[in-house]
Design a protein around this nucleic acid. Structure first.
Length: 261
DNA sequence: GTTGAGCGTT
């Protein structure tokens, strides 16, 4: 994977994990290793990547052997420009198995937290990944960290309070995501079978062709092209060819999205 | 060819 060629984490018994954020999507572990290894003994470098696309998610984990070296790396590499981007280095907060980490060191076992979490809400992993993916898609917004730095210099307490309780963009983001989710869900319910086969947005086969003759489209209700087609060309279609629709072309495989993996 | 304030794999 993204580590040194081994499969799985080498040993997390006495290592200190650092979270490297704001790295470029093209930065690899091999690029980060020499940079971090200069300040201490790096045990492992791991860059989480997307399951489907395989692209980097924009952050990495660097595990040091000693805490002082990790601290030194944080102080030295935090804010350093790597691959043309200013990276952020800080101690990891959570472990690979959702362990609680303090100063990069695991202080709580994962089994305990997992057991407690399971009793509450046993959400599957893939669900979380999808959610995260959706969030990443939704939060595509240009936000300069310098603005935050300015606020931090003026009122750093405001930042902490804002982030501690709930960031204001969270509301917008959450609301927008919820609405989008609801809309998509309602749409997917109608076209669950064509969700994996063809995109709902691809109504017209030729993109260069003119748009629908209808002056306005109903995004919430009449998103079904077949229904609208029938509704509009009902008299013509009935007279010309009542069963001329090529439904047999996409009908034979109604469920294919089940086998996503 | 693309995004970006976020916590990880055999």
């Amino acid at each position: 994977m993204s580590h040194f060629g081994r499969s799985g984490p080498p040993d997390i018994r006495d290592t200190y994990s650092l979270l490297v954020l704001n790295i470029t999507f093209r930065t690899t572990a091999d690029d980060l290793f020499p940079l971090f290894d200069r300040y201490g003994k790096v045990v492992d470098v791991f860059i989480p990547r997307d399951r489907r696309t395989g692209e980097s998610r924009g952050f990495a984990f660097v595990r040091y052997k000693y805490a002082d070296e990790a601290q030194k790396a944080v102080e030295k590499l935090d804010g350093r420009v790597v691959d043309g981007r200013e990276i952020m280095v800080q101690f990891a907060k959570y472990g690979p198995n959702a362990e609680r980490i303090h100063k990069g060191r695991i202080i709580e076992s994962a089994s305990k937290l997992r057991a407690r979490s399971r009793s509450r809400s046993p959400r599957p992993r893939y669900r979380d990944e999808y959610k995260d993916k959706d969030r990443r898609r939704s939060r595509s917004r240009s936000r300069d960290r310098y603005d935050r730095d300015r606020y931090q210099k003026s009122e750093r307490e405001h930042r902490y309070r804002s982030r501690s309780r709930s960031a204001s963009p969270d509301y917008q983001k959450d609301r927008g995501r919820a609405r989008y989710d609801d809309e998509q869900r309602s749409r997917s319910r109608s076209r669950s079978r064509s969700y994996g086969s063809a995109s709902p947005a691809r109504r017209s086969r030729s993109p260069k062709s003119r748009r629908s003759p209808s002056p306005r489209r109903t995004p919430s209700r009449g998103e079904n092209p077949e229904k609208r087609d029938l509704n509009e060309r009902s008299p013509v279609s009935k007279d010309a060819s009542p069963r001329g629709r090529p439904v047999d072309s996409r009908s034979p495989s109604p469920r294919r999205s089940d086998a996503d993996e």
